[in-house]
Amino acid sequence: MTTAPAKAGWRFRQPSVIPGFGLTLGFSLAYLTLIILIPLSGLVWRSASLGWTDFWAIATDRRTVKALEISFGTAFIAAAVNVVFGTIVAWVLVRYRFPGRRVIDAMVDLPFALPTAVAGIALTTLYSPKGWMGSLLAPLGIKVAYTPLGIVIALIFIGLPFVVRTVQPIIEEIDKEVEEAAATLGANRFQTIFRVLFPGLAPAVITGFALAFARGVGEYGSVIFIAGNLPYISEIAPLLIVIRLEEYDYAAATAIATIMLALSFLMLLIINLIQSRTRKRYG
């Protein structure tokens, strides 16, 4: 028995004694293709068969544009709010010791575990004019439920764990020596945090923002109850897709979905670029 000499050049797979490559990869690819790739390419194919004029007409329809603006705008604001408070929450959870820390830490994942529809009706009840929060805010002239502000609230709920869970491990990893170095060089605590620590957290914060933002753009269940769904005002893009589907306007639904996908991927791509650039530099 002879082993073939190692051939230089292209080889699909590195040799290995472990069995099961064909079976597992074959099954994985088949399953992936059936469940994900064929349906998704069906969407793209449908959208492509629309024709440029039709597609453009739907894309520039005022209601579509507004819905997309609302979806992306509210998701952006909610992600920004989460970046600020999520970072504070992560900091408190990592740096401070207090009774019940583990419980609070576990609770941060609630939005992952709680079905979105449940969150949706709970938030709506909470922020309706008669609800606990709504009745507090109403005298101040702040209306939350059935306004874009309500959408933002729902998306803050949905996006919070994305920020906390991306930033938290990076705060845990901060080398205490770095903070001490800043202090020995004369920096006060404020300067240490804002000039030394936060810039180091930036890549994680950007990632957390991106994840929360991406999730927020596509979010449906928690938003539709609290949003009020007024066209041009508080109607989100995913809801418009559902509405078009219910009107059997598959073309419009497909077009909006395609635009959403394209925009989301574009944003993720940009954020990935920013990240890989910072990573290259800071190592």
Binding site: S16, F21, L32, L37, A214, E219, A253, M260
Partner: peptide, 27 residues
């Protein structure tokens, strides 16, 4: 357990449903 071409791409594809709106997943 294996090294093969296109592994990183496959890993990315697996994550794809996370970046798709649930409504689009139904659509």
């Amino acid at each position: 357990k294996f090294e093969f071409k296109g592994k990183a791409f496959l890993t990315t594809l697996i994550d794809l449903p996370f970046s798709v709106s649930p409504v689009i997943s139904g659509l």
